[in-house]
Design a protein around this nucleic acid. Structure first.
Length: 248
DNA sequence: AAGCGCGACAACCGCACATAG
DNA sequence: CCTATGTGCGGTTGTCGCGCT
């Protein structure tokens, strides 16, 4: 159990920033538990980590969001939901906190909240809009997706974070799918891929091979990334073929 | 000038996951 | 298999500054 009695909170001073920066220059990122001990900073490890990741880390873009960034953010949010870290991973120099704050400030109040998701996946028609609901489990590692935490065994209350999130696309969104997925990725589908998994593996491979999108958080073994692509591909299939199958 | 509302964003909190032992 | 520890994420809160009345 972590005890943070007397730990300083609130805004960081320049001196604290300087100390933290030096510590990470010497020891590198990670091992945040050691940071307060090494630096003597009267801050909890979480606070140190957050300060570094959201503010002190080099190459963070602290400028105003450009039009193209906002556009991409909107599209990615439609695709991924509140997956701020993934969205930020596609916006060079932006942090998840930046993206989240920007979204909450500029778009949250303007959003129309979709109806409660249903399980299993259902499809509804709203006028000329096709609403596709896809169950999106909290994307963690594959092995843990269906495991039950020890602490939950005797208290199996539904976890907020596991609540599925609906994804809705209008049919004219297909243009964007074409722009997001590279031509050769689209070809994967045209050439006969019929499942989300098929497309996912191909898209991941293409993504890495082409290096068209620089993203240090995008790893082949990152299940969350794969999941995003899985749903991206699945929804794409739904739109174009109407026969997407989520293979788990 | 003072008070108020609100936007922007930094920071905190709680929870879930990964993994080592 | 279980527990403890370390880490990461998303939601929420706190604070500050600015504009309006």
């Amino acid at each position: 159990m972590e005890v943070n009695v007397g730990v300083r909170k609130g805004a960081w001073t320049e001196e604290e920033d300087s100390i933290l920066r030096k510590c990470i220059e010497i020891h590198g990122e990670g091992n945040w538990y050691q940071v307060p001990l090494r630096t003597g900073l009267n801050r909890c490890r979480k606070s140190c980590r957050l300060r570094w990741l959201n503010y002190l880390k080099p190459n963070i873009n602290r400028g105003v969001f450009q039009e193209d960034e906002v556009d991409l953010m909107l599209r990615l949010h439609k695709l991924l939901g509140n997956r701020w870290s993934l969205i930020a991973g596609r916006l060079p120099g932006r942090t998840a906190n930046d993206v989240k704050n920007y979204w909450n400030t500029h778009f949250k109040k303007k959003m129309v909240v979709p109806s409660e998701p249903m399980y299993p996946r259902e499809k509804h028609n709203y006028g000329n809009m096709v609403k596709i609901q896809v169950i999106k489990p909290r994307p963690r590692t594959f092995s843990s997706r269906f495991s039950i935490r020890h602490s939950d065994k005797f208290n199996p209350t539904p976890m907020k974070s596991y609540r599925p999130q609906p994804v809705a696309y209008s049919e004219n969104e297909t243009n964007w799918w074409e722009s997001l997925l590279l031509d050769n990725q689209l070809a994967i589908v045209e050439e006969g891929a019929t499942t989300g998994a098929d497309i996912t593996s191909s898209v991941v491979a293409e993504d890495h091979a082409s290096e068209t999108v620089a993203n240090e958080n995008w790893h082949v073994n990152d299940w969350s990334a794969n999941t995003s692509l899985d749903h991206m591909a699945l929804n794409w299939l739904e739109l174009f073929h109407g026969n997407g199958e989520l293979i788990i």
